[in-house]
Design a protein around this nucleic acid. Structure first.
Lengths: 205, 205
DNA sequence: TCAAAACGTTAACAAAAGATAAGGAATAAT
DNA sequence: ATTATTCCTTATCTTTTGTTAACGTTTTGA
């Protein structure tokens, strides 16, 4: 991990992605900006470690991320996040409890970070307080919607349908990561995913 | 559906359940209270209808609720909510889009409601605005945590484990509703749930 | 109250998924 | 460059789940 100044382009990207949720005027943005930090992660570096409290939420300015748990030595991938999305072990961050999962870079990844203490100052800041509350609300609501969709996919769709939907996102990183990551994410074994892929490719050729 | 005054006991219950998220002083509570409405639902009555926009979020003051979708005439249960919890077709409420599911009373159920317009007035109210934003944030964050857990259960647990976990909640209503509701919720067929139950009861006797 | 509909279980068979192991390809490490 | 590791696929066998249908019971509605 390497802490340094935030590249201007990535800051702009962040501001742009925030716009559906919160629009800052210039003075507000200056204050907000001053509460941000920055970290780069090499492939396989960890942003969050299972068992330790997660003290920041991050914005993926570049790269992509995998959430996973270790259970009896078995690595199980629970989620992916990509450039432009937020990343955090939310429960751990909110409740200051040990994180239940690892969060790891799938490739060279840059995060813009808001630490718990900085977030608290923002929430205490007379000018920004309400705006940040709103930001937090909209953010959490956004994730609620995403999660609802994912849960529905487990109930209403087959693993094959979930796989096709994931591939339709067109994230090229998905072509470059181990397939057992994807298998876990879909809720099946790697062997089973291999069979699904065979079915798909035979029928589409 | 039947709109009337909110029973004092249920209002108190609501206020109590909100406390982890938001504490009102008396004047604030009076304002907040004036923005609430109330509806009673008979068993099988619908609070939300698939295809129509959901215009309120509710607090289950009494009873319990089932979320389900109709696909090609097949009824698929996606979620349950119980007394003390919030209920809404969130995505539909937030984005004013047609709801993707029905929300139905499993038994005689009373809801304390905040309509979209009333919520908007609260958000515009000089005294309460920030508090309501905060309330919304904490609420959404709470659901994020619940959803994360549910998603993890699909990845890490078997249907049998999910069934046992659900039963451990000790909600007696679960004994009185059709089991195919529960089967859908767990992501298996009713026949499969029947086999799971047989396995459990044989081994525990 | 009585007929119709909905329910839960079971059986039999088919389809899908898990487990394990083997083999070759790709990747990483020294 | 070469060895070691990881990865993906395939095969085989076992277990689980889905599907359909039957049957008795319970619930519902007229």
């Amino acid at each position: 991990m390497n802490t340094k100044d935030i590249p201007a382009g990535q800051l702009l990207f962040f501001r742009k992605e925030l716009e559906p949720y919160i629009v800052f005027d210039e003075p507000q943005w200056e204050i907000f900006k001053s509460h941000l930090t920055y970290s780069s992660f090499q492939k396989k570096d960890h942003f969050v470690v299972q068992g330790k409290v997660c003290d920041a939420i991050g914005f993926i300015a570049k790269g992509s991320i995998r959430y996973y748990t270790l259970k009896d030595g078995t690595d199980i991938t629970g989620y992916f996040s990509f450039s432009g999305e937020m990343v955090s072990s939310y429960l751990s961050f909110l409740k200051r409890e040990p994180a239940l999962n690892y969060i790891q870079a799938l490739e060279s990844t840059d995060l813009i970070l808001i630490s718990r203490t900085n977030l608290q100052s923002l929430l205490d800041h007379p000018i920004l307080s309400c705006k940040i509350e709103r930001f937090g609300r909209l953010m959490a609501e956004h994730y609620c919607c995403c999660y609802e969709e994912r849960i529905a996919s487990f109930i209403n769709q087959t693993a094959e349908e979930r796989y096709l939907k994931l591939m339709e996102t067109g994230r090229d990183i998905l072509q470059r990561i181990p397939q057992h990551y994807i298998a876990n994410y879909l809720g099946v074994t790697p062997v089973s995913l291999s069979r699904i892929r065979k079915r798909i490719f035979v029928h589409s050729d």
